[in-house]
Design a protein around this nucleic acid. Structure first.
Length: 776
DNA sequence: CCTTGGCACTTTTTT
DNA sequence: AGTGCCAAGG
């Protein structure tokens, strides 16, 4: 058990205390992920079947990274059979197999926020409710709150307090809207994000046999980022853990930053009340950052009233002071950061991937993209407007969703007249109202159009068009049964007229829309190949759709690795970078103007600041601008209050003479960091977000179930060329790039599995027959 | 029924 | 500045 070596005392305790409730309070940089990983490995080495372990993380990124690390210790196959993922993805999976209990189809659609909003808008319209008073976003937010607190529609109407609260807020129709929204989703066979948790709760409370089944299955439960769980998540965990009470929660109250989506910091603060005999371990030594950074972060977070007593310390070098740069404008700020990165990289021989630019809002990215591009500095933007949220992409996905679940009326209405085929708003409204009144879905209505036609009040022309549309959809569905997702999507985009419509638009935007659709199709082909090659792959359309619904950006990896990372602070949680630039430190931006009204909100912003600062290992830079281009005009800004909360002993001002300088019109600063790098080296390449950062796995553990085979023959599906391949060979794969063969398994030449470690993608298990590997 | 042009609103953060 | 929504005209 050499993995236990090198753990400090508290880490060791957290890893080896396997039975009973355990709370690990892990300060920033204290090796939390390592502890979680080792703990799971330790469970498995101690004979716990990975099948009985449930590990819940907060983001897909975290889940993936941890799974990779665990695989290195216990082997890929064990790692694969544990249930690990975000709450949403794990319970979506569980709900798929138990959906019938709740009257949902197992292929239910998952609505993202945009979908929910569209549904809600239609509901408001149908109910003739003024959406100026009932602002859809606000209404949806309230519904989300209900759901996260397990207030179902019935519970709502039995709860005078809430009804009264809504009345006081001048929203006395909330109950009816809520009911109608839930009904609509149900009839569409769809769940929104909150439903995935709420319905899981419903399932576990209403059906004791289901609860018992999963209690028995998940004997060991681990929850990461416990401080960010909401009430609904809390109850699921509690229910599942109540039989064996082998529950380990890991978190840091100082890093709770998701209360806007219902995270309840009291879940972690009250853990000891829920489990009186719980063991508590505190990890307080920070191994990540310099003393200066840790101490400065401590000072800031100490301004919050609500927290555990904790003493995070670092024994690393003292390190450099945090440098503050005051800029004239957002463009100036970005230019400084870009030049600074360039300069430090050259001076200290660092790689671009060691730098991060962190900001409060996604809209701040643009200026930095411009500045970096100007200097040919490669960068990658994480998060932001997801590819899958673009209109043209959603349109095609709308068709695909309709094929999988034809009751999904949101998808249906999205595509029924796009491209325009003469089924306008009036007709659509008739369909909606009729379906609603007869308590059927629009799909049922269209499937029995002849039967319902006399009562619909539509003319023959329109009826024909409806019939044509629906038989086109039916034809696609038939095709889906026989053909693969890529071919079907291709056919859909052609026959629906989508591609033609987009191609007719020759403006630059139009061209980029065509490219986006093309990229979606490419990604489907990639998905298809990948799933076909993985031995436990699932190449179904519904699997593809689920993947994109629950992970905002499943973008492909690519060759270029060494890039500066740009992301929001929220996304940066759990990551670390040698040099961090924390930008836009201005009042009303950070802290956000939306969060300056109450102490609670402000404390969350402060925790956010804490998270940002503690991402830095060696150096941190703070920047702010005195004016900023915002909402189409220039706005003056003041430095963030957080800056003044840090003792000056930790800080150093880069441009103290700034005030006296005349403002130069170019907005470029000319202080000590002038010299912009020349633009002659053309290695700049813009990349979309990818999921994993840095760390390529190096050592390999021998998987238990694979028997080594010395050599195997590559057989192409086409059967043309074949070549011998053996362990240790370097191979090239169309999508995954270059990698090394670690393992071969199987005697049947048609079914030889190869485990390949790709430089960019990590390990993959491939079926040799399908994977087009070339020896290099 | 569809297209166009003007106008209002936007930006907090994510599953 | 960019997007989405609505009203009016074709």
């Amino acid at each position: 058990m050499d993995y236990l070596k090198g753990l400090n005392e508290s880490q060791y305790e957290a890893v080896t205390t396997l039975e009973g409730p355990l709370m690990v309070l892990a300060g920033a940089g204290s090796g939390k992920t390592r502890v979680l990983t080792m703990r799971i490995a330790h469970l498995i080495t101690n004979g716990v079947d990975p099948f009985n372990i449930l590990a819940l993380t907060f983001t897909n990124k975290a889940a993936r990274e941890m799974k990779e690390r665990i695989a290195k210790v216990v082997g890929e196959s064990d790692a694969r059979s544990l249930w690990m993922g975000t709450f949403h993805s794990v319970f979506a999976r569980l709900l798929r197999s138990e959906a019938h209990y709740l009257g949902f189809p197992s292929n239910f659609t998952i609505y993202d926020t945009q979908d929910s909003l569209n549904v809600l808008k239609k509901v408001l319209k149908e109910m003739n409710i003024d959406s100026d008073v009932y602002k859809p976003k606000k209404v949806l937010g309230r519904i989300s709150q209900y759901k996260n607190n397990l207030i179902t529609v019935n519970a709502y109407f039995n709860n005078p307090e809430i009804i009264e609260a809504d009345e006081r807020a001048n929203m006395k129709l909330m109950g009816e809207i809520y009911r109608k929204y839930v009904d609509t989703c149900f009839r569409s066979g769809a769940m929104d994000f909150d439903d995935l948790l709420l319905r899981t709760n419903e399932l576990l409370t209403r059906f004791p046999e289901v609860l018992a089944k999963y209690q028995d299955r998940f004997r060991y439960i681990l929850v990461d980022e416990y401080q960010d769980t909401n009430h609904s998540q809390y109850l699921i965990v509690k229910a599942l853990a109540s039989k064996f009470e082998n529950i380990c929660v890991v978190g840091d109250d100082a890093q709770s930053i998701y209360s806007f989506r219902g995270a309840n910091i009291y879940n972690i603060l009250n853990f000891k009340k829920d489990y009186p005999d719980a063991h508590t371990v505190s990890l307080e030594q920070n191994y990540r950052s310099t003393q200066n950074i840790v101490n400065a972060a401590n000072v800031v977070i100490s301004k919050n009233l609500q927290q555990f007593k904790k003493n995070v310390f670092s024994e690393n070098e003292e390190g450099e002071k945090i440098k503050i740069y005051r800029s004239l404008s957002d463009a100036d700020e970005a230019n400084f950061v870009a030049s600074n990165i360039w300069e430090i990289r050259n001076r200290e021989q660092r790689k671009f991937e060691e730098f991060a630019i962190l900001y409060r809002t996604n809209s701040q990215t643009r200026a930095f993209e411009d500045a970096l591009r100007k200097r040919n500095i490669p960068y990658r933007v994480y998060g932001g407007l997801s590819f899958y949220q673009r209109k043209e992409v959603k349109d095609l996905i709308g068709y695909l969703r309709l094929l999988v679940n034809e009751n999904d009326s949101e998808a249906l209405l999205r595509v029924i007249n796009y491209p325009a085929r003469g089924i306008g708003e009036t007709t659509q409204n008739k369909l909606i109202v009729f379906a609603d009144q007869n308590n059927i879905s629009i799909a049922e209505l269209l499937s029995n159009l002849g039967f319902y036609a006399p009562r619909l009040g539509l003319n023959n022309g329109v009826l024909n068009k409806l019939g044509e549309f629906w038989s086109m959809i039916k034809a696609f569905q038939v095709m889906l049964k026989q053909d693969n997702v890529y071919n079907v999507a291709m056919e859909v985009s052609k026959r629906s007229g989508l591609i033609k419509l987009l191609k007719d638009d020759q403006t630059p935007e139009g061209i980029s829309r065509v490219e986006n659709v093309q990229e979606l199709l490419n990604s489907m082909q990639g998905f298809l190949e990948e799933q076909q090659q993985l031995e436990d792959g699932d190449a179904s359309l519904s699997n593809f759709l689920e993947n994109i619904a629950l992970s905002a950006d499943t973008q492909r990896n690519d060759d270029e690795e060494d890039m500066v990372s740009l992301m929001t602070i929220h996304l940066s949680k759990g990551l670390e970078f040698p040099v961090v630039h924390l930008v836009g430190l201005e009042e009303n931006l950070f802290p956000s103007f939306m969060s300056s009204s109450s102490r609670e909100e402000l404390e969350e912003e402060r925790r956010l600041f804490y998270v940002a600062l503690t991402r830095a290992e060696k150096q941190a830079f703070f920047t702010y601008a005195i004016s900023r281009f915002q909402w189409g005009k220039i706005t003056d800004a003041e430095p963030s209050r957080f800056l003044s909360e840090i003792d000056s002993e930790f800080l150093e001002f880069i441009n103290p003479a700034m005030e006296r300088r005349t403002i130069n019109r170019s907005g470029l600063s000319s202080s000590i960091f002038d010299e912009a790098p020349s633009a002659e080296t053309p290695f700049f390449k813009k990349k979309e977000a990818k999921r994993t950062i840095g760390s390529t796995p190096k050592e390999e553990a021998v998987p238990k179930n694979l028997k080594p085979v010395a050599t195997a023959r590559i057989i192409n599906p086409s059967g043309q060329s074949s070549q011998d391949i053996e362990v240790g060979d370097h191979v090239r794969h169309d999508r995954f790039g270059v990698g090394e063969v670690i393992f071969l398994d199987g005697t049947d030449p048609n079914n030889i599995k190869a485990k390949v470690h790709f430089a960019n993608e990590g390990e993959k298990n491939l079926i040799l027959k399908f994977a087009k590997l070339t020896k290099i």
